[in-house]
Amino acid sequence: MSAILPPEDRVWWKQPLDRVEGTWVVIALIWCLIMFFMMPYWHVFGKQNLANEAYRTTPEVYMKKAQDMVDKFTVRTETDQKIPVVAPPAGSDVYLVARLWSWWPILELEAGKSYRIHLMSMDWLHGFSLQPENINIQVHPGYDHVLTVQPTRAGTYSIICNEYCGINHHTMSSKLYVK
């Protein structure tokens, strides 16, 4: 008779569908299908997708690539810790190192050009969070994740960490310049 008692009709599965329910199930299903097709649609026609290009590697190998880039393209250093500011050429591979508790080095990019930005952690999980653009990507140790990024507007951006990475998680922030 009610939801806390066994169904009244022993053959409840033959009970006809109510019109309200029938209508809603059809509408809801169509909406779910639309939402499904939006994802492949955006891969074809949208501009913000992850290519999911990633390579397994080790911190040593990754760090060496980052160091080579820094050696070649550093334009100045900033802060007391003399963090290098790197201005790599458009289209090149740009290595950003995430580690407890800093991003290294500082990047300086050009608006309208695209770059292959690599993200990897040297230790625990970190979260790449570009503000105020609000692009957020998980950073793993051992996975070199490549994003092809095209900054649109000039300005000074921040990269903060938004994956909890221990006691100084909230101090992990850096800059990104777009000229």
Binding site: W42, G46, Q48, G127, N136, I137, Q138, N162
Partner: peptide, 10 residues
């Protein structure tokens, strides 16, 4: 998939 980029871990 794509919308996740603008809210992940916020």
């Amino acid at each position: 998939e794509q919308l996740n980029l603008i809210i992940h871990n916020t």
